[in-house]
Simulated scan of single mutants.
Amino acid sequence: MITVSTDGSCLRNPGGAVGWAWINHDGTFDAGGAASGTNQTAELTALLEAVRAHPGAEPLMIESDSQYAIKCASEWLEGWRRKGWKTASGSPVKNLELVQSIDRAISEREGPVRFRWVRGHVGNPFNERADQLAGHAAQDWASGRGDLDAVFGEASPLVEGATSRRPSSAREEVAVTTGTKAATERPAEPAWSNGTLFD
Rank of each mutant, 00 (worst) to 15 (best):
F115Q: 03
R81G: 08
P187R: 06
S107C: 14
N194Y: 06
A170V: 10
R145T: 10
G19F: 10
E49G: 07
V113A: 07
G135D: 09
H136V: 02
D65E: 05
A137K: 09
S64R: 07
H25W: 11
D30M: 06
E189C: 09
R145F: 08
A142P: 06
I70F: 02
K71Q: 12
L77W: 06
S168I: 01
E128M: 12
A162Y: 01
P187Y: 08
G161W: 01
P14D: 08
A35C: 13
A130C: 03
S168C: 01
I2G: 05
F126W: 15
V99Q: 03
R104Q: 09
A134W: 10
G146V: 01
P59G: 07
G90Q: 12
E43Y: 02
G8L: 06
D7N: 15
G79N: 08
W85G: 00
L48N: 03
G32H: 10
D131C: 11
V122R: 15
N24D: 05
L44K: 05
K86C: 15
L60W: 09
Y68H: 12
V151T: 04
G90T: 14
R165G: 00
T184Y: 07
N13G: 07
R114F: 10
S5E: 12
G15P: 04
E172S: 09
T41N: 12
S169K: 09
S74T: 13
S91H: 11
K86T: 15
F115C: 08
F126E: 01
Q100K: 12
R119A: 14
E110H: 02
